[in-house]
Design a protein around this nucleic acid. Sequence first.
DNA 1: GAGTGGTCTAGACCACCTT
DNA 2: AGGTGGTCTAGACCACTCA
Lengths: 257, 257
Amino acid sequence: MRQSADMIPMEGKPGEAAGPQYLALRDQIAFNIEIGKLPAGSRLPSERQFQTSAGFARGTIRQALAQLEAEGLIYRRDRSGWYVSPPAITYDPTRWAGFMAYVTEQGRTPATITLAKSSINANAALADIFRVAPGSPLHVIERMRTIDGRPVLVERITVDPALAPGLLDHDLDGSLTQILKHKYGVVVARNRVDMRPCALAKEAAETLGTKPGAPSLTVVRTSFDEKGRVVEYDQEYWRHDAIRIHVDLSVRGEPDA
Amino acid sequence: MRQSADMIPMEGKPGEAAGPQYLALRDQIAFNIEIGKLPAGSRLPSERQFQTSAGFARGTIRQALAQLEAEGLIYRRDRSGWYVSPPAITYDPTRWAGFMAYVTEQGRTPATITLAKSSINANAALADIFRVAPGSPLHVIERMRTIDGRPVLVERITVDPALAPGLLDHDLDGSLTQILKHKYGVVVARNRVDMRPCALAKEAAETLGTKPGAPSLTVVRTSFDEKGRVVEYDQEYWRHDAIRIHVDLSVRGEPDA
DNA sequence: GAGTGGTCTAGACCACCTT
DNA sequence: AGGTGGTCTAGACCACTCA
């Protein structure tokens, strides 16, 4: 039996200030998410069902959905449908725990899939980061990580083989930092993290099962050992609705806000 | 004299892998930004000029522009046009400097405009944060901040009047933390920062001169004094292309990435 | 007042996921 | 095979900005 538009009947919402129609539809969907009529992970009616039930053109529907996506309330699975976003994971760059630990702590189920491992020759940018000559060999690992089965990030890790020869022969689905520490005696002493909102490039979008341009958060992490050598250079692309940054600090330096 | 589409002639770009037309147009525009033909702050040709020169329907043009906006390469000024984004400001939540200091340090010109100041009664959420009874009076300040004349953030600051009576009578265009420290002897000892990508709500969008749904970064900062009382609760909404987070840390705790 | 982006319509075909 | 979202067209009118 086909599912009709009103199998997930949307509640109306008390009148709002007039505005564009797509925002009214956005409000209505957001309202239904808030009150739990559309629980996390559930699927929204199809765009064409909205067309019928809401009476707008499909473009208008898609504007409302794109707005909700930008807000992090819903996400899309390419050519499958729109789904309500699960809660985000909180990430604290000053705490020293990895993905697996974070996610487990927060009552969710993490998983890692290694997509590719290869050896490349350093281009100018990488040569500069690792302080090696351009063309030097570097290990590159590409992984995808999921929370409760939903892909939330793709990452590309670069490691200097001088510090970890034969690294690619290990099982890389766990903690890389652990492998570096226990198998190679390489210990991370300093960490640099850069974050910025961005949009998914085509490739990353494909492996995350979404569309190029989907909003995203780029996290670039550079790890140094006690001698200041770069141990690990990790570029992560997160679904923007899956992560939340939290930092807790005591004062040092001069207040001047 | 009217400006014709080819007053900013767009360079063609070496052939790319086939894909949607809007991505091809995106690549072309991004290329022209990279090579400096479209410098930071400059205005792009109008959508209708693109329609003529690129030969696509306007919807397709707008898709390319929205993609570039999501990537942070361009931004819009409502009903005025599309502009190339200036470089982002780097923000380090572990460093103890305010907006004015950051921006100046990075060779840019900051400014603050106080939009509104008022007294409200705490709702449930705020009462919980400040540990006061619901309905207790609270100071609320709304400000907009600009870099080189471009609005980049709106913020809403809440302060407990018990700690700073008469705060609203001061000039609030400078550093609030300074005022609290020097006029009221209130010193911030601990700081909590939460960040997450989001989309601008209607009001914030209007004051930033953009459209609801424009990508954005929410930064919520809670400041405590040495006794653990909440001194300042600051909700900031940043244009997502204006900010970049940078954290530099030494290891503490257990590595487990 | 001319031009801009913002919103909206009503179609169409396609690639891909799902069953 | 049927349904989904992804892409694209060719119009239209509006609110607003800017000179």
